[in-house]
C-alpha cells in the first residue's frame, strides 16, 4: 500500500519518510503510513515504540525532522494544528485528552468550536445519541469524572468537530471491555462506513485488528510489518509475530 502516490486523492492521509522527535534525535525514523479514504488503519507496537510521536508529528506537535504528510492529496507537512483542524483532521491524544477545568458540555462545545450555533446544537444531539451516558453529566467538571467517562468525553468532543480524518491515540485506554468494544466495534468501525478515515493507535492489538482494514507494527521508531488486518488475524504465523511485536519485546530481540 505504501507504494501508492502520496498525492492521490484516494488517500485520506499519506505519510512518507517521516522522521520526528523532541530534539535533533529522531524517535520516529523514516515511517511510511497510508490511510485510504473511508478506511480504518491501526498502528500497534510496544511501549515507547514511537506511535504517539508519529501521530504528534503528523499533527505538527512533535518536532518534524524530515518527510512529508499529505491530506487528501494536499501537502500539509508542517501546518499548525489549528489549520489541520480546519482542514478536517480530528485528534484524540493519549493523555491530556480533555479540558480538565471545563464542564463536559463545555468540552463538547469546544469540539464544535468551528461550526455555527445551530449546527453545533445538531451535532450535540447526534453525539449524545452515541454517548447517552454523557447527557446527565453535561454540567459536571471533567476533573470529577472517572477515567472511562473522561475518554468518552474526549471521543465525543472529537465527534463534535465532525472531522473527515480521525487520529485516535489509544481511545479505549481505561474504558471497560464493554465500552472498549462499543467504541472500537461500533464507533470506530461505523466511522469507516460513513466515509471517515481513521488512524488508530491501540494497545488492544486483537481488537484493533478486528476493526481495522490495515495494520502497521512499529518497533523502535520504524515500521517492521505492514499488512491487511484480516490477513494478520487469520494467518497464525503473522498473527503471532504481530501480537508478539505489539505486546512483548520484539525490540529486545532486535538488540
Amino acid at each position: 500500500m505504501s507504494s501508492a502516490d502520496p498525492a492521490s486523492p484516494a488517500l485520506a492521509l499519506s505519510v512518507r519518510g517521516l522522521v520526528a522527535g523532541y530534539s535533533e534525535q529522531p524517535v520516529v525514523d523514516g515511517v511510511d503510513v497510508d490511510v485510504p479514504v473511508g478506511r480504518v488503519v491501526a498502528v500497534a507496537g510496544p511501549n515507547g515504540a514511537g506511535k504517539s510521536t508519529l501521530l504528534k508529528a503528523i499533527l505538527g506537535i512533535a518536532r518534524l525532522l524530515g518527510g512529508t504528510v499529505h491530506l487528501e492529496g494536499r501537502n500539509v507537512t508542517g501546518l499548525p494544528l489549528q489549520k489541520l483542524a480546519r482542514l478536517g483532521i480530528g485528534y484524540v491524544p493519549q493523555v491530556e485528552e480533555v479540558f480538565e477545568s471545563l464542564r463536559v458540555g463545555e468540552n463538547l462545545e469546544m469540539g464544535g468550536y468551528l461550526c455555527g450555533k445551530r449546527e453545533r446544537a445538531h451535532r450535540m444531539e447526534r453525539t449524545l445519541g452515541v454517548f447517552p451516558q454523557l447527557r446527565p453529566m453535561l454540567q459536571r467538571y471533567v476533573e470529577t469524572l472517572s477515567g472511562g467517562e473522561r475518554k468518552m468525553t474526549a471521543i465525543a468532543r472529537v465527534l463534535m468537530l465532525d472531522p473527515r480524518v480521525l487520529i485516535l491515540d489509544e481511545p479505549t485506554a481505561s474504558l471497560s471491555p464493554e465500552m472498549s468494544r462499543i467504541v472500537l466495534h461500533e464507533q470506530v468501525r461505523a466511522l469507516g462506513t460513513i466515509g471517515k478515515s481513521v488512524l488508530l493507535v491501540e494497545q488492544k492489538a486483537i481488537a484493533a485488528l478486528e476493526v481495522s482494514d490495515w495494520a502497521y507494527l512499529m518497533v523502535r521508531g520504524r515500521v517492521v510489518m505492514s499488512a491487511p488486518a484480516p490477513e494478520i488475524l487469520h494467518d497464525p504465523r503473522m498473527r503471532e509475530v504481530f501480537l508478539g511485536g505489539a505486546v512483548a519485546e520484539l525490540a529486545e530481540q532486535a538488540r
Binding site: 506537535i61 483542524a85 468550536y113
Partner: peptide, 8 residues
C-alpha cells in the same frame, strides 16, 4: 494543544 486541535 487540545484547543488548537479544536480549531481554536
Amino acid at each position: 494543544t487540545l484547543a488548537q486541535s479544536c480549531g481554536i
